Amino acid sequence: MDLHFNKELIKGYTSNSQIARVLTEGWVKQNSYCPNCGENPLNDYENNRPVADFYCIKCQEEFELKSKGGKLGTTITDGAYDTMIQRITSDTNPNFFFLTYSKELKVDNFLIIPKQFFTPDIIIKRKPLSDTARRAGWTGCNIDISKVSELGKIFLVEKSKIIQPNVVQTAFSKTTFLRNKNADAKGWILDILSCIEKIPNKDFTLNEIYKFESDLKVKYPNNNFIKDKIRQQLQFLRDRGIIEFNGRGTYKKM
């Protein structure tokens, strides 16, 4: 994997946005692989395809690329809010690649957020364009990746360090079980994961998770058995090897 962009690809281009698109998409096509099955290279779709930018010919996973110069940050600018919500709640939503690069046109970070981690909670609606704008009333959105579980942020390149493909594939496969869950079940699992990750220590107790009961009650006002639901999700995460139960109400993050 070569972290430098291929500048030969942009000969004849003058638009900054086109240059950025050609460089980043060209880099992914020449250097990336499928985080699910390891197939190399990925194939690119025709331009302006509404669903995705790349796909794996072997396992049929689809990927959309978002890129920016500078630091990764916590939010990524995306397109129309309604369109984004429709996509991530459909059966054909893609995985998302996020790529950041330096002024020297070198990749700093390249990560994937698998599609099962995309929920309406992480999509932030922006203010509509003013009445005087060319597209008056159009409403865009941002993707708030700070709300994504750490299990859902899988780096292929982190701070210019290339991560071994076998590590990437193991991390990717660890949470694919979420794809088989309905929206409510997946929401509960991701919410309990978020609670666990807010606890600073690797070891934690059931009582520490119970402290999030009031927050969960706000999100699930019709559920009168929040503690029961918490214990159920902890057992599920234990069975999936994401946490470890050490007895007497104590757990460990795996």
Rank of each mutant, 00 (worst) to 15 (best):
M1V: 14
D2Y: 10
F5T: 02
N6V: 03
L9A: 07
I10D: 04
I10R: 04
N16R: 10
I19D: 03
R21I: 11
T24E: 05
E25W: 02
W27M: 04
W27C: 00
W27I: 08
W27K: 04
N31Y: 06
P41Y: 09
P41H: 10
L42C: 02
N43E: 12
E46V: 08
N48D: 14
D53T: 04
D53K: 02
F54N: 03
F54D: 03
Y55D: 12
Y55E: 12
C56S: 09
Q60K: 13
E61T: 09
L65A: 07
S67D: 09
G69Q: 14
G69P: 06
G70Y: 10
L72I: 04
G79D: 14
I85G: 04
S90Q: 11
S90M: 12
T100Y: 03
Y101E: 09
K103E: 15
E104L: 10
E104I: 07
L105Q: 06
V107T: 08
L111M: 11
I113F: 00
F117C: 04
T119R: 08
D121S: 15
I124P: 03
G137T: 11
W138H: 12
G140H: 05
C141P: 07
C141A: 15
K147M: 11
V148W: 02
S149M: 03
G152L: 01
F155S: 01
K159F: 02
Q164K: 14
V167P: 02
T176A: 12
L178G: 01
N180L: 14
K181P: 02
A183W: 11
G187F: 08
I189T: 15
I199E: 02
P200G: 05
T205K: 01
L216R: 01
K217D: 08
K217V: 07
K219F: 12
R231A: 11
I243W: 00
E244W: 01
E244L: 06
G247N: 09
R248M: 13
T250E: 09
M254H: 05
M254G: 00
M254D: 07
